[in-house]
Design a protein around this nucleic acid. Structure first.
Lengths: 184, 184
DNA sequence: GGGGCTTAGTTGCTAACGCAACTACCCGCG
DNA sequence: CGCGGGTAGTTGCGTTAGCAACTAAGCCCC
């Protein structure tokens, strides 16, 4: 194997010893990671300065904001945000510290807890969501046509659904579902 | 119920007053994040058990492995991995501790440093890359057709390129570029 | 050839995450 | 009843990340 004596030339286009298809796939995965990282960075910056929120906390808050009753079980929230239970616990801790969320014990199951958006939290989100949406708009509008957005959504949805095997109904569009099996 | 004096305003069972297109975009962004998170989780698990590597360290190593000379400047590596300079420093620290990488000072610019794959590191990657590629294959094959992969790549590339504004040539396919402006 | 600006990389500090262990509670079964 | 197993959530601990401050080296310009 040509361990340290690799081809001297600049290797135009063709990558190394790996099959072309595999290479594409490697690249594809890389693109997903990079796109996510890039978006995260862009949004984080804006969210930070606009509402003093991190991407993470915004993610938690928006799911509360868009749920009837503005409340979700901790476990539900953890699943939706692809955060571990402990991660969610601390995230909600922080939000509670800043007064945007309160915990409420579930009367039907005293193990359980709801995270509930406070009035203040609701106000913050009523302000922040439109800004954020506008920002997304601004970014995506410069890059993709509506058709492209649609295709991308379709493809990613397939991927996401496969990855989470249907166990985790975490997409944004599922938010209008029930918040607690005991409620309503 | 709404004992928490929530605004009794618009609480229909459906999503709130956000426009449908905006909603789609919110979902799209969510899908990107979730897909990336899902992939990360899947790969991390396998990489961990196969090669004792984290996703992050693998990302660093593969770029070294696929560069002529198996060496890259720290800054180049940082840009490619969307890691901050300090993050990369520590990452390379860890890799040096485990003997997969060594630092080498750049003779032409004594500020700079190369991260260089050791023989051991090369061996680990020669073993790990095929496994990883096979794993990616396995995952993607179950979800997307080749055409779909291609479309997805195209769309994400547009997005990524826009996000990084051309400043950061971080994609996997750029790896065949030079490592050090002073070398070669 | 010696200031002053820039760049490459590292280090101190702090925040956020996951895993594993733990507590508290629910539930079913004898 | 009360015991055992399972689930919801939290906490201890270790790891990893970024930002800001720092050092060292290059570079420009007079």
């Amino acid at each position: 194997m040509a361990d340290h004596h690799l081809p001297e030339g600049p290797q135009p286009g063709s990558a190394l010893r790996i099959g072309v298809v595999d290479d594409r796939r490697l690249t594809l995965v890389g693109l997903i990671f990079e796109s996510a990282a890039g978006l995260r960075q862009v949004f984080e910056r804006r969210l930070e300065s606009n509402a003093g929120l991190t991407n993470q906390s915004f993610d938690v808050l928006i799911r509360l904001a868009r749920t009837p009753g503005n409340r979700l079980r901790m476990s539900e929230l953890a699943a939706q945000t692809t955060l571990s239970p402990s991660g969610l616990t601390r995230s909600v801790d922080r939000l509670e510290d800043t007064g945007l969320v309160v915990r409420e014990t579930c009367p039907e199951d005293r193990r359980g807890a709801f995270a509930v958006l406070t009035v203040e939290g609701k106000a913050v989100m009523d302000e922040a969501i439109p800004h954020h949406v506008a920002h997304i708009d601004e970014v995506l509008h410069g890059v993709l046509t509506l058709d492209e957005e649609h295709s991308l959504e379709l493809l990613l949805r397939k991927l996401r659904d496969y990855l989470f095997g249907g166990e985790t109904p975490c997409a944004m569009e599922r938010i209008s579902g029930d918040g607690c099996p005991t409620e309503q």
